[in-house]
């Protein structure tokens, strides 16, 4: 090979694959996405199976959806799930918003790091440990509020999920906006009302959506803490799986899945919109 050939072949190579790029990454990424979504696709696919065994495909049908809709136990479980999720989200988001405001805007104070750590604690403790610890606690103090017990546990572990986006939003928010308002004769309350809250709103909405999804999807803590009358949808699905695999499970699961995806997608757009807003 002459020097010129070498040079031109090197150049061709460089053009095909710029620095930092590697062969096969795209293919790898493709199979990764297949791995991520194939199980979900299979689940949804078999929810339309007419046969009463999940895996035995005999034809297309939506009867399992109809059956699921008419199942009173499922209706009860859905109601329980929604009540728990709404209450837990409302309370957790309120607590997290106040906490985030103080931790991000309250200046430096003794115990700030510890407070921050406490806020994030439910994220770090394995769910099963939280579940049995809360179970022991309720049994010890004799608290037996049924769904109330579940709600209390959900509020606790939803706090960090609501807290994170709100705090992130606050950290990205310059205090100069508030200073500018104060400079323009706004009182502390007016500054909070007209500047801080509207600018923080995307973070609060995002935090609420995340807690809602987290609460809705929780299984293990509800299973341990909840009593007989407080079955939520995931706990009910678990009991269905234990009883035997029918496409009804797939149908219910598909609906729950789509509901979560809808909320997360909404969250995605809210947070994306808020991101572009803060960029100057």
């Amino acid at each position: 090979m002459t020097e010129r050939d070498l040079k031109s072949s090197n150049m061709a190579k460089a053009k095909a694959l710029p620095v930092g790029h590697y062969r096969g990454l795209g293919v790898w990424n493709f199979f990764f996405m297949v791995f991520l979504y194939a199980p979900i696709a299979v689940l949804i696919f078999y929810s339309f199976n007419a046969n009463r065994m999940v895996i035995n495909w005999t034809g297309f049908g939506v009867e399992w959806y109809i059956k699921a809709f008419n199942n009173e136990d499922i209706q009860d479980a859905v109601w329980n799930s929604l009540i728990v999720a709404f209450v837990a989200t409302g309370v957790a988001t309120t607590i997290a918003t106040i906490g985030a405001l103080i931790l991000a805007r309250g200046g430096n104070f003794k115990g700030k790091t510890a407070s921050l750590g406490l806020m994030m604690l439910p994220l770090m403790v394995p769910e099963i440990v939280t579940a049995v610890a809360v179970l022991i606690f309720f049994a010890t103090i004799g608290l037996n509020w049924g769904l109330g017990n579940v709600i209390i546990a959900h509020i606790t572990f939803c706090i960090p999920f609501a807290f994170m986006p709100i705090r992130a939003r606050l950290e990205g928010m310059d205090t100069t906006m508030e200073q500018a308002a104060r400079d323009l004769y706004a009182s502390e309350w007016e500054t909070f009302r007209y500047i801080t809250v509207p600018m923080l709103m995307p973070g609060i909405v995002a935090g609420a959506m995340l807690s809602f999804v987290i609460s809705l999807d929780d299984f293990i803590i509800t299973l341990m803490v909840g009593g007989a009358g407080s079955t939520t949808l995931p706990v009910y699905i678990y009991s269905m799986i234990r009883r035997g695999l029918t496409p009804e499970i797939n149908a219910v699961s598909t609906l729950l899945l789509l509901f979560s995806v809808a909320i997360v997608t909404a969250y995605w757009f809210v947070s994306k919109k808020s991101n572009t807003k803060t960029v100057h």
């Binding site: 310059d174 100069t176 906006m177 200073q179 500018a180 308002a181 500047i195 509207p198 600018m199 807003k277 803060t278 100057h280």
Partner: peptide, 9 residues
């Protein structure tokens, strides 16, 4: 202000 601090909303 240096970076204007206009209220974005």
């Amino acid at each position: 202000f240096q970076h204007y601090a206009l209220f974005p909303h």
